[in-house]
């Protein structure tokens, strides 16, 4: 492990941290059960994290969950925005994930063509 590079990261990020607020009201959940992993959930989660970082969206937490029982729809991604109903996207690829982040997580408008289920 490259210790020197980690020290540089600490210095750089600590400077930026003073500008950030600690709140993360938006939540993105990636299904990471055996079915999700086999269907490609890992690159989807990596793409979501990377795209959020590129867009400097600091108010979003990205977490994982187990199998939701809709294995044929994996990778599944849930988006929770405060005051809005949960939206579940199915068969998400890294490209679709980047659009979901840009248009829904950050932009606030769900990407209707990728939606698998929506809270009634």
């Amino acid at each position: 492990m490259n210790i020197e590079e980690l020290k540089k990261i600490r210095e750089k990020v600590q400077k930026e941290m003073n500008l950030r607020s600690g709140e993360k009201p938006i939540k993105v959940v990636v299904g990471m059960g055996t079915c999700g992993i086999a269907a490609g959930a890992r690159p989807v989660m990596a793409a979501i994290k990377e795209h959020l970082a590129q867009q400097q969206a600091e108010n979003v937490s990205v977490v994982q969950s187990g199998c939701a029982g809709f294995c044929e729809q994996e990778p599944l991604v849930d988006v929770f925005r405060p005051g809005e109903k949960k939206v579940t996207y199915g068969k998400v690829s890294p490209d679709k994930a980047r659009r979901i982040v840009a248009e829904h997580v950050i932009g606030g408008k769900p990407v209707s063509e990728f939606i698998f289920a929506q809270e009634p």
């Binding site: 020290k7 990261i9 600490r10 990020v13 600590q14 941290m17």
Partner: peptide, 22 residues
Amino acid sequence: MRQILGSVGLEDPTVLDFVRRD
């Protein structure tokens, strides 16, 4: 990593990038 990073959380995107490259 925690010892070196101090107040910087492991969920920080730069850490994910570091882990992959390292």
